[in-house]
């Protein structure tokens, strides 16, 4: 039995004189204790949605509910929701401890309670030694921890994170990713995380909402999003994908190459199929489902990427752990067979 922490009901946000639509009737429901990620390229509306939840923006239309009560018209200071800002926005004139205690103090907690909670938070993010420092004396990673502690200190119902890791270098980013997961499981607070980094989204989230042009494209677990993308945008944005144009004929499809493959429930009419490169396998010429010519093969250490040309000129990429024809790789122009793993063909909605 899960309860809903945040619900957006057909939230629309227009800027300017209404000519820019940042959010287009977005409806979303985020469960209590979930690590939920809003993923999409810049300008897709993910940050606007986050700012609507925080109260920094007022939706043009629609409603936002926090634990079932409508907070659409509440100012940010009346919402039991805290934000970790992309720029951290630490108060430069306050110490680390004062920064962390700020929310509690503003809320009117007594000094003893503020001090106790601040110490707990300093311990949680392992910053006890830095309590009396100023933000400018901290490294980027340390500032990040203080920003997290400050937002977690008032024990919000929901923590909003606006691309909090984008300013960190790769190594620190990996560290903070697991740190964030640890903090989330220790506190049990619902995290709503905004990122444009698909890998970050896949590795950290319980569920992901993929957004584009102010609209939700797909909501699901990282596995669902990756293995069963509903449309071309999602398939293309998350991971690498081959697109094959085909004609659906009931329970089979005819590819642009003229080959016909069985595909139960394919429907009828022209469709686009998505195939992940790791679900393609090279075979001896004449075997497999299709014939192809090797254009190039690139060694990546963990795997090989084979660029292939189908008989009609369509380019596809196949990824495999070892080259099929020995350690030297496969020669350019060599004809090969191509086999699809079971369930590899996904019919896209558009």
């Amino acid at each position: 039995m899960t309860t809903t922490a945040i619900e957006a009901r057909a939230v629309t946000k227009r800027f300017g004189a209404g000519e820019i639509t940042a959010l287009d009737a977005v409806s979303i429901s985020i469960a209590q204790g979930e690590f939920f990620t809003l993923l999409g390229p810049s300008g897709c509306g993910k940050t606007t949605l986050l700012r609507c939840i925080a109260g920094f923006e007022t939706p043009t239309d629609g409603a936002i509910l926090l634990s079932g009560s409508d907070i659409t018209a509440s100012p940010p200071n009346k919402r039991n929701v805290n934000t970790v800002f992309q720029s951290y926005a630490l108060f430069p004139h306050l110490t680390v401890a004062q920064n962390i205690g700020f929310g509690l103090k503003m809320r009117g907690d007594d000094a003893a309670k503020v001090d106790k909670r601040t110490e707990e938070m300093l311990a949680l993010v392992k910053m006890e030694q830095m309590a009396s420092r100023r933000p400018e004396q901290l490294s980027g990673g340390q500032q990040q921890r203080v920003a997290l502690a400050r937002a977690l200190a008032p024990a919000p119902e929901v923590l909003l994170l606006d691309e909090p890791l984008s300013a960190l270098d790769l190594k620190l980013r990996k560290e903070m990713q697991s740190e964030l997961k640890r903090l989330q499981s220790e506190t049990g607070i619902t995290f709503v995380f905004v990122t444009h980094d698909q890998e970050e989204a896949l590795t950290m989230s319980d569920r992901i909402a993929v957004m584009s042009h102010g609209q939700l494209q797909q909501v699901g677990s990282p596995r669902e999003i990756y293995t069963r993308p509903v449309n071309r945008f999602v398939a293309d944005f998350i991971g690498e994908t081959n697109f094959l144009e085909a004609e659906a004929k009931g329970d089979s499809v005819t590819l642009s190459t003229g080959d016909t493959l069985p595909l139960p429930g394919a429907g009828t009419g022209p469709i686009t199929l998505a195939v992940r490169p790791e679900l393609l396998r090279l075979t001896e010429p004449g075997e497999g489902d299709l014939t192809a010519t090797v254009r190039d093969s690139v060694y990546f250490g963990t795997d090989w990427h084979c660029h292939l040309l189908l008989s009609d000129g369509t380019e596809v990429v196949a990824r495999m752990q070892s080259p099929p024809t020995g350690e030297s790789g496969i020669g350019k122009g060599q004809p090969v067979g191509l086999a699809f793993a079971p369930g590899a063909l996904r019919v896209l909605e558009d």
């Binding site: 925080a54 920094f56 940010p76 934000t83």
Partner: peptide, 8 residues
């Protein structure tokens, strides 16, 4: 904005 977010 951060201050407002933190109940100020």
């Amino acid at each position: 904005t951060a201050a407002a977010d933190l109940y100020a």
